[in-house]
Amino acid sequence: MDVLDRIDEQVKNNAVMIYMKGTPQFPQCGFSGRTVEALKQVGKEFAYCNVLADPEIFENLPRYADWPTFPQVYVNGELIGGCDITLEMFASGDLKKIIDEATAG
């Protein structure tokens, strides 16, 4: 399967998906660590992909949604942003709101 199709399938099959460096237990980048911490705080289930363990995704994810950096958070198949946006949305309560809506039902 083409790597962009693989990414497309991942973000569409998971209501909340994070592409990060390392794992939620052992983040290998401070920005990924903070972002995944916000997702944990929201408390809903989420999927993750460790881009350091998947070079093909590491190379190609930036062109999937035309976003040059990691981490990347997707809700309902839509990119919501990287670390800064996710944390700002967490602080404002918007992150919880969209994740609650995405995972309801």
Partner: peptide
Amino acid sequence: ALALHTMTMEEWFKKGNAPASPPCAGGG
């Protein structure tokens, strides 16, 4: 890495600063 804090004038006055960036964990 590029940490980005993008604000309008109004938001800037309200907020007054931008959050500190995290230390690196060595990956990547």
